[in-house]
Design a protein around this nucleic acid. Structure first.
Lengths: 211, 211
DNA sequence: ACCTAATCTTGACAGTTGTCAAGATAAAGC
DNA sequence: GCTTTATCTTGACAACTGTCAAGATTAGGT
């Protein structure tokens, strides 16, 4: 039977919730600091001490807030997800024509390839780790699904603006864009200046032919 | 001025060539042993001692034949390439009809996803490493190009058998198949039994619509 | 102001890493 | 056979790793 909570109990609950919120906020801060180093060095070369040295924290703090290294990195992955899954939503929502949507999408794509290259390479690195490490698999599959949904929102809206329907399934479409992005990311990181414009051209040619 | 070689010099050259050949053969043996462990553990978790322990060699031998760890792994990558780039060539060469080629291609694809899963995940792992480590980039880009050519040989032959021409560029086609394969590899390694049949279905539906 | 609990720092631990070098063994040349 | 070179083993090295615990510091509640 649920019974009435006393005032004292309610206060305790609120206090507890605040504490947890503060605790989580700190975890995010730490995860964010870890992401910086992970994006620079990659999973294989990143140690907790290296993360700590590149941040304002000492290495002990990370063990106070995370059970172990995997826990920290999983938290990083989840946090990364939240930030990037809505990247194109504004463009999708505001574009009034097919041309405008395509232009906006291609631009954002180019922008993130240029500015967030090290976060993207970290994502591909961690997704590869999920091929070996069970602990990552759940989160990675979930993020992959979110990204697939994101691409699908763009594509189906683009089709809709032309009174059409995408010619391929959501999964195939994501595989295509994911494969392309990975490819141009590598080119870009290999200092090929053609990477970004070529990607933009490819996307502008491809999307109208599919949707 | 090129001058006539003495008999002694020619013998010395042959001896030298044999020595080098033997040396290279040993390197390949070692690389092959290393690939087994790398495919099992992934780049981040694989140490030279671990490689040695899972093989018939002692860890010192690896340093006799390779300058350092990167040198060894680069050799592994190159060797891996040589083995897998011709995987579909027989099917492409012998198939007498579109249906036969498609069937053969899809079967080989399913077979390699099932049997060589750990080599494939290693490839994706190392390609991700190339996003961070310059030393890998050259080899990885070269292998990527070889794989793209391989896919293109299949697709253009498939189109040819129907008197057609592929509807997309070689790069886009490779990105698509690469993205799809990566996706189903992850599903397969996550013990999803639908991974292989779904991939086969997807490919059988996709290829005729493109080529 | 005091006490308790939360937060953080520091240093230590055992194990692992890549690398190297000295010496053992085997092969090859004469 | 002996010598010289190539190949391999073994053990050591310093540096680095994740983890933990004891104690310092801080914040919060009363």
């Amino acid at each position: 039977m649920a019974r009435q909570m006393s005032a004292k109990e309610r206060v305790a609950d609120v206090v507890e919730a605040l504490r947890e919120e503060k605790f989580n906020a700190r975890r995010i801060e730490l995860a964010e600091a870890a992401l910086a180093t992970l994006g620079e060095l990659g999973y294989a070369r990143t140690s907790l001490r290296e993360i700590a040295q590149n941040s304002e924290f000492t290495h002990g703090v990370f063990h106070y807030y995370f059970a172990d290294k995997l826990d920290l990195i999983c938290c990083c992955v989840r946090h990364y997800k939240a930030k990037c899954v809505t990247r194109y939503d504004e463009v999708t929502a505001t574009a009034r024509s097919r041309e405008e949507l395509l232009e906006g999408f291609a631009n954002k794509l180019a922008e993130t390839l240029r500015d967030d290259a090290s976060m993207h390479r970290l994502w591909y690195d961690l997704r590869a780790q999920a091929l070996f490490e069970d602990a990552f698999r759940g989160d990675v599959l979930e993020i992959d699904q979110s990204l697939e949904n994101m691409v699908w929102r763009i594509a189906s809206r683009y089709a809709e603006l032309g009174g059409r329907t995408p010619a391929v399934s959501s999964g195939v479409l994501y595989a295509l864009f994911d494969g392309l992005f990975q490819r141009y990311l590598l080119k870009h990181l290999a200092d090929d200046p053609r990477a970004i414009p070529e990607m933009v051209n490819e996307v502008k040619r491809l999307l109208p032919s599919i949707c």
